[in-house]
């Protein structure tokens, strides 16, 4: 029963990391790196097991945070990073995708919270057997 709570916790942690990554993408929708290259969109990759070396298949963990070299072009000749044709490469992030992913992450987080609540209620009723 305790193991069930650990599994749910791994789900909560993974969804929170996903949420942080999405927040970072949305905050950096127009950002450049210090070297002048556009910010690259981050995305998380989930895998089963509670860690890279865990083969039990129980729980979930973030295996990698990937950077995607996808950019959107905007015409702005006066921009310091504009190319010869007057186009600027900006991070390939759009709010719609990020918001959708954010809602998915938040719903998945809630599902894990519900699982913990049920684990707790089962544990409580089992403990009441003692007296």
């Amino acid at each position: 029963m305790m193991e069930a709570i650990d599994i749910s916790t791994s789900g909560l942690v993974a969804q929170r990391i996903r949420m942080n990554t999405i927040a970072m993408n949305m905050a950096n929708i127009d950002s450049f790196n210090p070297d002048g290259t556009p910010y690259q969109r981050r995305s998380v990759e989930f895998q089963t097991g509670s860690g890279a070396r865990d083969r039990s298949g129980q729980g979930v963990h973030v295996a990698a945070i990937r950077q995607e070299a996808v950019y959107r072009k905007e015409y702005d000749p006066s921009h310091p990073y504009a190319d010869a044709d007057g186009y600027v490469s900006l991070p390939g992030i759009d709010y719609l995708t990020e918001m959708t992913n954010m809602m998915l992450a938040s719903r998945a987080y809630e599902a894990n919270v519900t699982a913990v609540e049920l684990s707790k209620s089962m544990l409580n009723s089992s403990l009441r057997l003692l007296g």
């Binding site: 029963m1 193991e3 069930a4 599994i7 749910s8 791994s10 789900g11 993974a14 969804q15 996903r18 990759e45 989930f46 895998q47 089963t48 298949g57 129980q58 729980g59 979930v60 998915l104 992450a105 998945a108 599902a111 894990n112 699982a115 049920l118 684990s119 089962m122 089992s126």
Partner: peptide, 17 residues
């Protein structure tokens, strides 16, 4: 109890490819 662990594992892996 054992089934609960299995179902909880499913929920934590809702987004695992």
């Amino acid at each position: 109890q054992q089934r609960h662990s299995v179902l909880v594992n499913n929920i934590s892996n809702f987004d695992t490819p």
